[in-house]
């Protein structure tokens, strides 16, 4: 589905220690374990955000991917309510659920407990950038580009939002993949028509 008036204006794909921004590889850290890889992304693309270190790995991945996605794409032209965040993954927050469960036999960790929901990554992104628009987190076996594009298109067409960060943020142990897209009504940046096919193509780059 392509409604003809929404565009993918930026994309960020992270997998196998590599970051691809708008189709071009921009960073690689060979053989880095996930925590070290995410820390290197933080050091390179952000810094000065103490709360990053408290996040679980899923939130760090989504948060770092958003930092890269929005690099050179200022969002200050939108009111907080105009930007939505719609994400999906396969493993929900299972990695953190397991870590939290391990603490329960001793003293349950409050800091881990707050990350035992997958949509917390949306909260971390929204706090960082001040987004207050529509948000949802779907859990499905595979990346359903049709669901995401249809849902986001509906939000854009009904005027609920005018911009959206959407895509896939998956992490379980050392397996991870983020594929985020900035979707806007006005063309800028890479300006690909926002549809299922282009989302899939960008994700598989």
């Amino acid at each position: 589905m392509n409604n003809g008036n929404a565009y993918i204006t930026s994309s960020c794909i992270i997998r196998r220690q590599t970051v691809v921004k708008n189709g071009a590889t921009v960073f690689t850290a060979e053989n880095a374990a996930l925590p070290e890889f995410l820390r290197s992304l933080y050091d390179r693309y952000s810094g000065q955000y103490q709360k990053f270190h408290k996040m679980d790995l899923l939130s760090k991945l989504g948060w770092a991917a958003t930092e890269i996605l929005l690099q050179d794409m200022p969002m200050d032209g939108y009111r907080p309510e105009e930007t939505g965040v719609i994400l999906a993954n396969k493993s929900s927050s299972l990695d953190t659920d397991e870590r939290y469960y391990e603490t329960v036999s001793d003293i349950a960790s409050p800091a881990l407990f707050v990350y035992t929901l997958p949509n917390i990554v949306i909260g971390e992104i929204s706090i960082r950038h001040g987004f207050k628009g529509e948000n949802a987190f779907f859990v499905s076996d595979t990346f359903d580009a049709g669901l995401i594009s249809g849902y986001v298109t509906q939000l854009l067409n009904t005027g609920a939002i005018n911009a959206c960060i959407c895509g896939w943020v998956e992490q379980y142990h050392e397996q991870y993949e983020a594929a985020l897209f900035l979707v806007e009504k006005e063309a800028r940046g890479m300006a690909l028509p926002f549809d299922e096919k282009n989302m899939r193509q960008q994700k598989e780059v």
Binding site: I107, S109, P110, A111
Partner: peptide, 16 residues
């Protein structure tokens, strides 16, 4: 700049 979750962690710290 600690928050309410940190407060709970400080309580855990005293216990542990």
């Amino acid at each position: 700049g600690l928050d309410s979750i940190d407060a709970l962690e400080l309580i855990v710290l005293l216990q542990q």
